[in-house]
């Protein structure tokens, strides 16, 4: 009469307190975030894990969209490099996007995001690839000359060592001069996560006072 699985905690939420210690989230916020995770991870296969298709579906509301950046973000979230996101990976990555997270974590994440080939620097060809991808996905059309001049100007400012690439130190200096470049590294939603997903209280395991 006893199905032990029925009494197990859902996969990925075995220890919300430990996850709260690892991230900037409180235990209640971790539990509320898990409500979001459950929604996204059950969209295609209800297995308690987010695959790339489910991630794209949540981002674009369609799984048809190919996006260089959605792929890149997914790969950075996927710290276990197994092609799927468990709740721990999801919570740890989103923690960086919390308004209270250290700016250095946001700078590091954004650098890795744009360092497409993971060589430790952002090269001109990568910047061009990302500019073209952004223009294509938004249906904007700029001539190659205009794109090249935007990249020239960017490297004139960012590449202070004049070696044709942007290293981590140069990236840091650039974003500190232009904080708007980190705008998408902060999600205000994460501050209100417990009010966005109030149903977490029905599954809460702890008294988070």
């Amino acid at each position: 009469c006893c199905d032990a699985d029925l009494y197990k905690q859902p996969r990925g939420l075995e220890d919300p307190e430990a996850l709260a210690r690892e991230t900037v989230f409180s235990v209640s916020e971790i539990e509320a975030l898990y409500e979001l995770f459950k929604k996204i991870s059950s969209a295609v296969i209800d297995d308690g894990l987010i695959n790339k298709e489910e991630f794209q579906l949540a981002l674009f509301k369609t799984n048809k969209k190919e996006s260089l950046f959605a792929d890149r973000v997914f790969d950075l979230f996927d710290t276990k490099h197994n092609g799927i996101l468990d709740f721990e990976e999801f919570a740890c990555a989103l923690s960086i996007f919390h308004p209270n997270s250290p700016i250095d974590d946001k700078i590091e994440f954004s650098f890795q995001l744009y360092d497409l080939k993971q060589q430790g620097f952002i090269e001109r060809q990568e910047v061009k690839q990302m500019v073209v991808a952004t223009l294509t996905e938004s249906g904007m059309n700029l001539s190659d000359d205009v794109i090249e001049s935007i990249i020239d100007k960017t490297f004139e400012e960012a590449d202070t060592k004049h070696d044709g690439k942007i290293d981590k130190e140069e990236w840091r200096n650039l974003v500190l001069r232009h904080p708007s470049l980190l705008k998408n590294m902060t999600l205000q939603y994460l501050k209100d996560i417990t009010t966005t997903f109030p149903s977490f209280v029905f599954h809460s395991q702890v008294d988070d006072t």
Partner: peptide, 25 residues
């Protein structure tokens, strides 16, 4: 005037980088 724009400002407009969309799931 697009030429006045930093390439990374342009890139940051990508929808794929707008993770706020995850919260409309």
């Amino acid at each position: 005037q697009p030429v006045a724009m930093n390439a990374f400002e342009l890139i940051s407009l990508s929808k794929g980088l707008n993770l706020g969309n995850l919260f409309d799931a």
